[in-house]
Design a protein around this nucleic acid. Structure first.
Lengths: 95, 95
DNA sequence: CATTTTTGTCAGCGTTCGCTGACATTATCA
DNA sequence: TGATAATGTCAGCGAACGCTGACAAAAATG
Protein backbone atom coordinates (compact mmCIF):
# COMPACT_ATOMS: atom_id res chain seq x y z
CA UNK A 1 0.00 0.00 0.00
CA UNK A 2 1.26 3.43 -0.97
CA UNK A 3 0.96 6.07 1.72
CA UNK A 4 0.25 9.52 0.39
CA UNK A 5 -1.92 11.11 3.04
CA UNK A 6 -2.67 10.75 6.74
CA UNK A 7 -5.98 9.18 5.76
CA UNK A 8 -4.15 6.46 3.85
CA UNK A 9 -2.15 5.71 6.91
CA UNK A 10 -5.23 5.62 9.10
CA UNK A 11 -6.84 3.10 6.81
CA UNK A 12 -3.78 0.89 6.80
CA UNK A 13 -3.61 0.93 10.56
CA UNK A 14 -7.25 0.21 11.07
CA UNK A 15 -7.30 -2.61 8.54
CA UNK A 16 -4.31 -4.25 10.09
CA UNK A 17 -5.69 -3.87 13.58
CA UNK A 18 -8.94 -5.55 12.62
CA UNK A 19 -7.12 -8.26 10.78
CA UNK A 20 -5.25 -8.97 13.98
CA UNK A 21 -8.52 -8.89 15.92
CA UNK A 22 -7.39 -6.21 18.27
CA UNK A 23 -9.60 -3.53 19.73
CA UNK A 24 -8.41 0.03 20.03
CA UNK A 25 -7.66 -0.22 23.73
CA UNK A 26 -5.42 -3.22 23.30
CA UNK A 27 -3.56 -1.68 20.42
CA UNK A 28 -3.16 1.58 22.30
CA UNK A 29 -1.52 -0.23 25.21
CA UNK A 30 0.74 -2.08 22.83
CA UNK A 31 1.86 1.11 21.15
CA UNK A 32 2.08 3.00 24.40
CA UNK A 33 -0.46 5.69 23.61
CA UNK A 34 -3.96 6.54 24.69
CA UNK A 35 -7.02 5.06 23.07
CA UNK A 36 -7.86 8.57 21.97
CA UNK A 37 -4.74 8.62 19.90
CA UNK A 38 -5.64 5.41 18.12
CA UNK A 39 -9.09 6.77 17.33
CA UNK A 40 -7.69 9.92 15.84
CA UNK A 41 -5.00 8.22 13.83
CA UNK A 42 -7.49 5.87 12.29
CA UNK A 43 -9.56 8.85 11.32
CA UNK A 44 -6.61 10.33 9.49
CA UNK A 45 -5.39 12.90 11.95
CA UNK A 46 -2.89 14.98 9.97
CA UNK A 47 -0.80 16.28 12.82
CA UNK A 48 0.05 13.10 14.65
CA UNK A 49 3.57 12.74 15.96
CA UNK A 50 5.98 10.98 13.68
CA UNK A 51 7.53 8.80 16.36
CA UNK A 52 4.18 7.56 17.60
CA UNK A 53 3.13 6.70 14.09
CA UNK A 54 6.27 4.68 13.56
CA UNK A 55 5.72 2.89 16.82
CA UNK A 56 2.18 2.08 15.80
CA UNK A 57 3.31 0.58 12.52
CA UNK A 58 5.93 -1.40 14.34
CA UNK A 59 3.42 -2.70 16.86
CA UNK A 60 1.28 -3.88 13.97
CA UNK A 61 4.15 -5.46 12.13
CA UNK A 62 3.90 -3.10 9.20
CA UNK A 63 7.28 -2.30 7.64
CA UNK A 64 7.62 1.14 6.09
CA UNK A 65 9.61 1.41 2.94
CA UNK A 66 10.97 4.60 1.40
CA UNK A 67 12.14 4.15 -2.15
CA UNK A 68 14.88 6.66 -2.89
CA UNK A 69 13.74 6.61 -6.47
CA UNK A 70 13.54 3.20 -8.00
CA UNK A 71 15.84 2.93 -11.00
CA UNK A 72 13.84 4.77 -13.61
CA UNK A 73 14.30 2.02 -16.17
CA UNK A 74 17.19 2.13 -18.62
CA UNK A 75 18.73 5.18 -20.15
CA UNK A 76 21.44 7.16 -18.41
CA UNK A 77 20.82 9.42 -15.46
CA UNK A 78 17.68 11.43 -16.27
CA UNK A 79 19.07 14.80 -15.27
CA UNK A 80 21.75 14.28 -12.73
CA UNK A 81 23.51 17.30 -14.16
CA UNK A 82 22.35 20.49 -12.55
CA UNK A 83 21.83 22.83 -15.42
CA UNK A 84 20.80 25.59 -13.10
CA UNK A 85 24.10 25.56 -11.32
CA UNK A 86 25.98 25.57 -14.60
CA UNK A 87 23.99 28.45 -15.98
CA UNK A 88 24.38 30.36 -12.77
CA UNK A 89 28.11 30.03 -12.93
CA UNK A 90 28.21 30.91 -16.60
CA UNK A 91 26.44 34.11 -15.77
CA UNK A 92 28.86 34.96 -13.02
CA UNK A 93 32.05 34.54 -14.99
CA UNK A 94 31.73 37.23 -17.62
CA UNK A 95 33.41 35.68 -20.64
CA UNK B 1 15.25 2.00 2.66
CA UNK B 2 13.35 0.78 5.68
CA UNK B 3 12.07 3.48 7.99
CA UNK B 4 12.03 2.52 11.62
CA UNK B 5 12.80 5.73 13.45
CA UNK B 6 12.56 9.47 12.92
CA UNK B 7 16.31 9.49 12.45
CA UNK B 8 15.99 7.06 9.56
CA UNK B 9 13.54 9.37 7.92
CA UNK B 10 15.76 12.36 8.48
CA UNK B 11 18.63 10.60 6.77
CA UNK B 12 16.52 9.63 3.80
CA UNK B 13 15.29 13.17 3.38
CA UNK B 14 18.70 14.71 3.66
CA UNK B 15 20.30 12.26 1.26
CA UNK B 16 17.64 12.83 -1.32
CA UNK B 17 17.80 16.58 -0.94
CA UNK B 18 21.53 16.60 -1.54
CA UNK B 19 21.20 14.25 -4.45
CA UNK B 20 18.80 16.75 -5.97
CA UNK B 21 21.23 19.56 -5.19
CA UNK B 22 18.74 21.52 -3.20
CA UNK B 23 19.55 23.62 -0.18
CA UNK B 24 17.31 23.61 2.86
CA UNK B 25 15.70 26.93 2.01
CA UNK B 26 14.66 25.79 -1.43
CA UNK B 27 13.30 22.52 -0.19
CA UNK B 28 11.44 24.26 2.60
CA UNK B 29 9.69 26.51 0.12
CA UNK B 30 8.85 23.56 -2.04
CA UNK B 31 7.31 21.68 0.86
CA UNK B 32 5.65 24.73 2.25
CA UNK B 33 7.37 24.80 5.62
CA UNK B 34 10.03 26.87 7.31
CA UNK B 35 13.72 26.21 6.93
CA UNK B 36 13.73 25.47 10.63
CA UNK B 37 11.42 22.59 10.03
CA UNK B 38 13.71 21.08 7.43
CA UNK B 39 16.66 21.37 9.76
CA UNK B 40 14.82 19.61 12.53
CA UNK B 41 13.43 16.85 10.37
CA UNK B 42 16.86 16.08 9.00
CA UNK B 43 18.11 15.83 12.54
CA UNK B 44 15.48 13.24 13.34
CA UNK B 45 12.92 15.30 15.15
CA UNK B 46 10.55 12.71 16.64
CA UNK B 47 7.46 14.84 16.95
CA UNK B 48 7.14 16.25 13.49
CA UNK B 49 3.67 16.45 12.01
CA UNK B 50 2.66 13.50 9.92
CA UNK B 51 1.15 15.55 7.11
CA UNK B 52 4.23 17.71 6.74
CA UNK B 53 6.42 14.65 6.60
CA UNK B 54 4.32 13.16 3.85
CA UNK B 55 4.44 16.39 1.92
CA UNK B 56 8.21 16.46 2.27
CA UNK B 57 8.55 12.97 0.88
CA UNK B 58 6.25 13.87 -1.95
CA UNK B 59 8.23 17.01 -2.75
CA UNK B 60 11.33 14.86 -2.95
CA UNK B 61 9.71 12.20 -5.07
CA UNK B 62 10.05 9.54 -2.43
CA UNK B 63 7.17 7.06 -2.43
CA UNK B 64 6.25 5.54 0.92
CA UNK B 65 5.25 1.95 0.99
CA UNK B 66 3.48 0.15 3.82
CA UNK B 67 3.59 -3.60 3.44
CA UNK B 68 0.54 -5.14 5.06
CA UNK B 69 2.70 -8.15 5.82
CA UNK B 70 4.47 -9.61 2.86
CA UNK B 71 3.48 -13.21 2.28
CA UNK B 72 5.59 -14.89 4.89
CA UNK B 73 6.74 -17.61 2.51
CA UNK B 74 4.74 -20.77 2.02
CA UNK B 75 2.79 -22.63 4.64
CA UNK B 76 -0.79 -21.73 5.52
CA UNK B 77 -1.76 -18.70 7.51
CA UNK B 78 0.67 -18.45 10.42
CA UNK B 79 -1.93 -17.85 13.09
CA UNK B 80 -4.94 -16.26 11.56
CA UNK B 81 -7.03 -18.10 14.11
CA UNK B 82 -7.41 -16.11 17.27
CA UNK B 83 -6.77 -18.59 19.99
CA UNK B 84 -7.37 -16.02 22.63
CA UNK B 85 -10.90 -15.44 21.49
CA UNK B 86 -11.58 -19.16 21.37
CA UNK B 87 -10.20 -19.73 24.82
CA UNK B 88 -12.12 -16.79 26.17
CA UNK B 89 -15.34 -18.19 24.87
CA UNK B 90 -14.52 -21.66 26.11
CA UNK B 91 -14.13 -20.25 29.57
CA UNK B 92 -17.43 -18.47 29.44
CA UNK B 93 -19.56 -21.38 28.34
CA UNK B 94 -19.31 -23.75 31.27
CA UNK B 95 -19.37 -27.08 29.50
C1' DC C 1 -34.89 -8.90 23.69
C1' DA C 2 -31.15 -7.43 27.27
C1' DT C 3 -26.22 -7.30 28.02
C1' DT C 4 -21.59 -6.60 26.97
C1' DT C 5 -18.10 -4.90 24.08
C1' DT C 6 -16.37 -1.62 21.08
C1' DT C 7 -16.13 2.80 19.19
C1' DG C 8 -16.82 7.77 19.21
C1' DT C 9 -17.25 12.45 21.59
C1' DC C 10 -16.50 16.07 24.92
C1' DA C 11 -13.70 19.34 27.90
C1' DG C 12 -9.70 20.74 30.45
C1' DC C 13 -4.67 20.64 31.12
C1' DG C 14 0.40 20.85 30.55
C1' DT C 15 3.66 20.35 26.88
C1' DT C 16 5.51 21.08 22.49
C1' DC C 17 4.85 22.22 17.79
C1' DG C 18 6.23 25.11 13.79
C1' DC C 19 6.90 29.88 12.71
C1' DT C 20 9.75 34.28 12.52
C1' DG C 21 14.06 36.80 12.66
C1' DA C 22 18.44 37.48 13.96
C1' DC C 23 22.79 35.72 14.85
C1' DA C 24 26.95 31.89 14.96
C1' DT C 25 29.34 28.52 12.54
C1' DT C 26 30.97 26.01 8.88
C1' DA C 27 31.64 24.83 3.89
C1' DT C 28 32.54 26.42 -0.75
C1' DC C 29 35.08 28.75 -4.11
C1' DA C 30 37.67 32.13 -6.82
C1' DT D 1 43.29 34.51 1.53
C1' DG D 2 38.70 36.88 1.74
C1' DA D 3 33.84 36.66 0.36
C1' DT D 4 29.64 34.19 -0.22
C1' DA D 5 26.60 30.56 0.57
C1' DA D 6 24.78 26.97 3.43
C1' DT D 7 23.80 25.15 7.79
C1' DG D 8 22.93 25.36 12.67
C1' DT D 9 21.28 27.74 17.03
C1' DC D 10 18.64 30.80 19.94
C1' DA D 11 14.28 32.94 21.97
C1' DG D 12 9.46 34.22 21.91
C1' DC D 13 4.69 33.35 20.42
C1' DG D 14 0.05 31.42 19.10
C1' DA D 15 -1.90 27.03 18.09
C1' DA D 16 -2.47 22.25 18.57
C1' DC D 17 -0.80 17.97 20.54
C1' DG D 18 -1.76 13.86 23.39
C1' DC D 19 -3.46 12.68 27.91
C1' DT D 20 -7.25 11.70 31.36
C1' DG D 21 -11.96 10.60 32.63
C1' DA D 22 -16.58 10.33 31.93
C1' DC D 23 -20.34 9.62 29.03
C1' DA D 24 -23.08 8.43 24.49
C1' DA D 25 -23.76 5.68 20.55
C1' DA D 26 -23.24 1.64 17.96
C1' DA D 27 -22.13 -3.18 17.26
C1' DA D 28 -21.75 -7.80 18.71
C1' DT D 29 -23.31 -11.70 21.42
C1' DG D 30 -26.52 -14.88 23.67
Amino acid sequence: MLIRTPADLGAVIRDRRKRLKLDQSTLAKRIGVSRQWVIEIEHGHPRAELALVLRALDALGIPLNANPELKTSRGPAPTAVDINAIVAKAKKSKT
